[in-house]
Simulated scan of single mutants.
Amino acid sequence: MPVPLSAETIRQAPKVLLHDHLDGGLRPSTIVDIAGRIGYRALPTTDVDELATWFRDASSSGSLERYLETFSHTVAVMQTVEGLRRVAREAVEDLAADGVVYAEIRWAPEQHTEGGLTLEQVVEAVLSGFREGEAAAAAAGQTIRVGAIATAMRHAARSLEIAELAVRYRDDGVVGFDIAGAEAGYPPTRHLDAFEYLRRENAHFTIHAGEAFGLPSIWEAIQWCGTDRLGHGVRIVDDITAGGKLGRLAQYVRDKRIPLEMCPSSNVQTGAANSIEEHPIGMLRRLQFRVTVNTDNRLMSQTSMTRELTLLAEAFHYTWADLQWFTVNAMKSAFIGFDERLAIINSVVKPGYARLTA
């Protein structure tokens, strides 16, 4: 008999995470500790529980811009090699404890140079933290593989520089590139030189699109910029009728199997979806889009992969087969080599779900 679905049993299932922001997943206790060490006094409170609540409440305004404001505090405590390594290590440990077996964690190196670090020092500190986290997880009997995604801020003008940085470190653990930040007024086509460079270098990239802005953002990301994946992509439903008829863009996205990095709780917080029960992921799963489930910012949403999958299972009456489908989708869409992806699917993901459904 299959093991009944619950938060506890879902935690035991192998999970794959493609869209998780390093500066959105800090432990509140770590923020308070590092802030005290470096003399950062702008935190709204130094009480760990109250700080966790503040992040959740400040992120639930329904405004993407307000949501993004919360990052001023997390980025402030990630301006030293020690701080970056610690945050990166703890992120991996937390994901491994939640049953994540493969993760791609993204962050914007350009936001961590205020204390005098070079971009190279920032990248090397984070990669070192990831490797330390993998080793700590292994010592605890947990297996996890982590890749880094170097992100450029779409309102800035450093995307080509960050793209070059990503390519420079791709043999050391940087598996891809991304642009992030407020979509309105900052279309992905502003960064065409970066995307053209990445394509010349045979490098992978994803683009935040279709979250706060609509179909034109998705169309530009795909047809002008050539993205491999869509960060969120929620608004692709604007090209699908209530009866499930697909428009030209939605049909293209589905036919080309372009992965959608969906983050249900975060999408509700920023107003991209009304509720978990009304989240477009339900329709998109039924229509067989390449949908993946992600956390986005674990601190701001007070979430984990276990929580996201549990919420979806409750809202849409999903079974273990559905959760395995999401997980295999994500692993197929990862930015590591085909052999590695296949090995994780066949030796980790499928056996892990088989134990829960036997």
Rank of each mutant, 00 (worst) to 15 (best):
188 P>F: 07
188 P>C: 00
188 P>R: 03
189 T>R: 14
193 D>T: 15
194 A>Y: 09
195 F>A: 02
196 E>W: 09
197 Y>M: 00
201 E>F: 05
202 N>M: 13
202 N>E: 15
204 H>V: 14
206 T>V: 11
207 I>W: 02
207 I>H: 04
208 H>E: 03
209 A>G: 01
210 G>H: 02
210 G>M: 01
212 A>Q: 11
214 G>V: 05
215 L>V: 14
216 P>T: 11
217 S>D: 13
218 I>Q: 06
220 E>F: 05
221 A>Y: 10
222 I>R: 06
223 Q>S: 13
223 Q>R: 14
224 W>S: 15
226 G>A: 07
230 L>C: 14
231 G>M: 08
232 H>F: 09
233 G>E: 07
233 G>M: 11
234 V>Q: 06
236 I>Q: 08
237 V>I: 12
239 D>Y: 00
240 I>P: 08
241 T>Q: 14
242 A>I: 12
242 A>K: 15
243 G>Y: 10
247 G>V: 01
248 R>G: 08
250 A>P: 06
251 Q>T: 15
251 Q>V: 09
254 R>S: 13
255 D>P: 11
256 K>I: 02
256 K>M: 14
257 R>D: 05
258 I>D: 02
258 I>E: 07
259 P>R: 13
259 P>Q: 00
262 M>C: 09
263 C>N: 11
263 C>Y: 09
265 S>C: 08
265 S>M: 07
267 N>W: 04
268 V>G: 05
270 T>N: 10
271 G>T: 04
271 G>L: 06
273 A>Y: 05
275 S>F: 07
275 S>D: 05
276 I>H: 12
278 E>W: 03
280 P>R: 01
282 G>A: 02
283 M>H: 02
284 L>H: 00
285 R>T: 12
287 L>V: 14
288 Q>H: 11
289 F>G: 01
290 R>I: 05
290 R>C: 01
293 V>S: 01
293 V>R: 03
293 V>L: 08
